[in-house]
Simulated scan of single mutants.
Amino acid sequence: MESNVVNAASLRATTITAHPPDSTGYVSRPARDPNGIGRYYEGRQIAHVMGHEGADWLERNDRTREEGTELLINELHLKPTDVVADIGAGTGFFSFRLAPLVPRGRVLAVDIQPEMITELRQRQAKNGLHNVEPVLGTTTDPHLPASAVDVVLIVDAYHEFDHPREMGQAIRRALRPGTGRLALVEYRAEDPNVPIKEIHKMTVAQARKEMAAVGLEFVEVRETLPQQHLLLFRRPQ
């Protein structure tokens, strides 16, 4: 009987460890949350991407008040000559607000959905902000110029990246060595009062863990926004 117990325990242990994370931090297993995919990175389940059908939600009237978007933009402390990459730009909600602040720079509005790129171009034709450049990226590469970006901004999108490690590495390569900054904005997972599904939130600890894995240094976290963390990282020299 004792032998049978030991064997059963061994079998359970084998089952549990059958699919450990690979060397890149990924593991595939059944989705713990139906709003996520069956893929985990550094222990975090990756969320489903919000499609272009959700464009109206990005441009909702009360977004500025709910998220403190003007405060976020001010916290970036942009210079007129900065090159800014807005990754997961969507309809350009932030891209077109950032553009006037970098009149001698440019905003690279990156999205992986061709429909969003079309929307960006249509909005640009109406507002005339020619220093916004729509960029069609992929799930592994935002197609940014190497060592040429001053600020990368990712608002409520990183947790949906299918390949966060590859994207993180690509972002690191794009940032200017020593000065390039990543501004990562995610809903606070530590706060149960933030009315967002758990899979669409992140903790500071998790964000720091994932950015460290791709060689980005933590600078600080600013808790000035109503519902989100603003985490700042930089590319080392």
Score class of each variant (00 low, 15 high):
S3N: 12
N4H: 08
V5P: 00
V6P: 00
N7H: 11
N7E: 15
A8M: 08
A9V: 12
A9C: 05
A9S: 03
R12D: 08
R12I: 15
R12Y: 14
T14L: 11
T14N: 08
T14G: 08
T17F: 13
T17M: 08
T17K: 09
T17W: 12
A18W: 06
H19E: 08
H19T: 14
H19P: 00
P21E: 15
S23Q: 11
T24P: 00
T24V: 02
G25E: 04
Y26F: 15
Y26D: 03
Y26C: 03
V27M: 14
V27T: 14
V27E: 11
R29T: 05
R29S: 05
R29Y: 12
R29A: 12
P30D: 06
A31K: 09
A31H: 05
R32F: 06
R32M: 09
R32G: 10
D33C: 06
P34S: 09
P34H: 02
N35I: 04
G36C: 08
G36Q: 04
I37R: 05
I37A: 00
G38T: 08
Y40S: 03
Y41G: 01
Y41I: 02
E42I: 03
E42T: 01
G43D: 07
R44T: 12
R44I: 13
Q45R: 05
Q45H: 06
Q45E: 04
I46V: 12
I46A: 01
A47I: 04
A47T: 10
A47R: 00
H48P: 00
V49D: 01
M50T: 03
M50Q: 11
G51H: 08
H52N: 13
E53M: 06
